[in-house]
Write a protein that binds this DNA or RNA. Structure first.
Lengths: 213, 213
DNA sequence: CCTAGCATGTGAATGTTATAACTTAAAAAC
DNA sequence: GTTTTTAAGTTATAACATTCACATGCTAGG
């Protein structure tokens, strides 16, 4: 098998293209060019074509891309031709926000279990889902065949939660806690850090001020 | 002036190093090597040294880095030797979570105004802060000398909010809405996309499955 | 049927980032 | 005081990603 490695930056952009295509489709647009996509998401046209080229030929020369088709292709490539059940740990404010986040549902993500070890939170309802104690996680994972977990707990608890998730068979983790998790080979892990981007902004603002001197 | 451009990836890691150093400092660690930092945050030792080299020489050869000093330096570089007042628009669940997020306060970020145009939300309190109508934003910005805004509204409203922020003098925007914002030159903008990383995970899980065939 | 116009797909070149190898300096041991 | 060890700083190399420019192929119009 010819294993061409796809850059993660390309996958990231593919996700963005995909969502932009959904929007075009909702607006009734049927055809789009690489230049228009580029314009819409803020990259170069060549970048769009190069990214898509990793996965095949989806356009018609002289014409452009069929919006519906390309939307389906991109979703398929990203694995979004199926629904994904998600396990969430952490029923704090962030967990609550994630549970009710529309951007997940619209892409086929569905949180099927919310867990916490805080007794004051267990039993409460978040968007029609009861917060369960950690012990219940194994059966929920099995019931829904979940493969992905989300960590929305304070930093100090994150590693334990991750270990517990892996022990119970989850294969991929999205971590919102600002710590580096140590996980066995083969487990997919990505971090979403809410304050890093903010610090990039302050860095750039500081730099800008310095430039003015 | 010698303008050396610093890669954004370096700034991102600097932010992570910085937080890791704070943790070491809290734990009473006084000296640390590039290898230990690397281990702690999940990068290579060479990467750590290279990143720091963009900004100066902070270590002692044969010894390592003084934790407290390096922590101060990194925070200074990132502009975190001062507090940053933040303007937040969007008092939904995500806005609420951001208001109460401890990771902001501990790094000197303080949300000083929460705004929304939803009448059912205006007047409510979020963490001792009253949700205000958009019209009040100008005076809050002036009062606190705020320069950074956070957008936590649905995608369709994001561009208008961004325009309004810029019109009122904000210079940098952290956008949680999954759309590309169109802003004038000179305005710093970064997006935090909650589902992109999730789609990287599903992409990789799909790829992994394909490999097994 | 032939030509003109257009936008994709692609291979080469450019630019950038990360890795590795090496040099320098400090400290500790002898 | 000399040597050995350690780890930072630096240079060179390799890997990677992006941009550019052109050839390819489709569509439409005459």
């Amino acid at each position: 098998m010819k294993t061409l490695r796809v850059p993660e930056a390309t996958v990231t952009r593919l996700s963005i293209y995909s969502r932009y295509l959904e929007r075009l489709d909702r607006n009734g647009v049927t055809t789009v060019s690489s230049g228009e996509i580029a314009e819409g998401v803020g990259v170069s046209p060549a970048q769009v074509r190069k990214d898509l080229a990793y996965f095949g030929e989806f356009g018609t020369r002289g014409v452009g891309y069929n919006v519906k088709d390309l939307m389906r292709y991109t979703k398929k490539i990203l694995g979004l031709d199926q629904d994904w059940p998600l396990i969430l740990v952490g029923a704090g404010n962030l967990g609550y926000a994630l549970c009710t986040y529309k951007g997940f549902n619209s892409r086929g993500f569905k949180i099927v279990g919310v867990f916490d070890n805080d007794l004051t939170k267990i039993g409460k309802k978040i968007a029609e889902l009861e917060v369960l104690p950690m012990e219940k996680m194994p059966e929920v994972i099995q019931e829904h065949k979940a493969r992905i977990g989300i960590i929305a707990v304070p930093p100090r608890a994150a590693q334990d939660v991750a270990d517990f998730m892996v022990k119970n068979g989850l294969e991929a983790i999205l971590n919102f806690a600002p710590v580096a998790l140590n996980l066995p080979e083969g487990i997919e892990i990505r971090n979403v850090d809410l304050s890093v981007k903010l610090e990039i902004l302050t860095f750039n603002l500081g730099f800008k001020s310095a430039q003015r001197l």
